[in-house]
Simulated scan of single mutants.
Amino acid sequence: MEIKESTALVTGANRGIGYVFARALIARGAATVYAGVRDPASVSGEDLTPLRLDVTVPEEVAAAAGDATIVINNVGVGGFTTKLLTGSFDGARQAVEINYFGTWAVSRACAPVLGTKGLSAADHRLVPAAARRSAGSVLGTSSARSQRRRIHER
């Protein structure tokens, strides 16, 4: 996978590992790095291009696919307030919508776009970007923070 002069989309690029991925792409010569986030004002660094992206909004996901040759699908939330035995399921539902269906939606939207850049239909799956030797790549990540769950009562 060639990073130099590439166009990348990094979801969840305003902090944590998403921000680290975005900075690494810039450092390695990516021409454009879109930072896909719910709040574009939260993106720091003038060399990143903020892109409003709520992965639970199909129109925003479709628009984000754009012209990316690299997609790092990093979006995720954690720390919801639903406890194992008490509380509303609203926080858990939101986490599933974002962490599961949201990453799936981004992958589904970007795969055909990457396909026009040299990937065959068989290559439309999430794989580590470092293992790729093709024109476009999707890297699916899941931050440790989004995986933590509070399962005990206080």
Rank of each mutant, 00 (worst) to 15 (best):
L25F: 07
K4M: 09
Q147S: 03
N73S: 02
P58E: 14
G16V: 05
M1E: 05
A144K: 00
V71S: 03
I98M: 10
D90L: 13
A63Q: 09
T69N: 03
L53W: 01
R38D: 05
R23A: 01
G91F: 00
H124L: 08
G136P: 04
H152Q: 14
S107K: 00
N74K: 12
A13M: 08
A62I: 13
Q94N: 13
S142N: 15
R28P: 07
V57Y: 06
E97Y: 12
A30M: 06
L25R: 01
S142F: 02
M1D: 09
G115Y: 04
T103R: 12
V57Q: 09
L25I: 09
G66K: 14
V61H: 11
Y100H: 11
P128H: 14
G45F: 02
A121W: 08
V127E: 13
S6N: 01
I3D: 03
V37A: 11
F21G: 02
V127T: 09
W104F: 12
V138H: 02
E97G: 15
A22F: 02
L48C: 09
V37P: 00
A24S: 11
V61W: 09
L51W: 08
G118F: 01
V113C: 05
G66T: 12
N99Q: 06
T141H: 13
I151V: 12
I72T: 01
S137H: 08
A65E: 04
L53S: 07
S6A: 11
T11V: 05
G16S: 07
V127G: 08
A144M: 06
V96F: 08
R15C: 10
A63W: 01
I70Y: 03
K4C: 07
V127D: 15
A31M: 08
A22T: 06
S6Y: 10
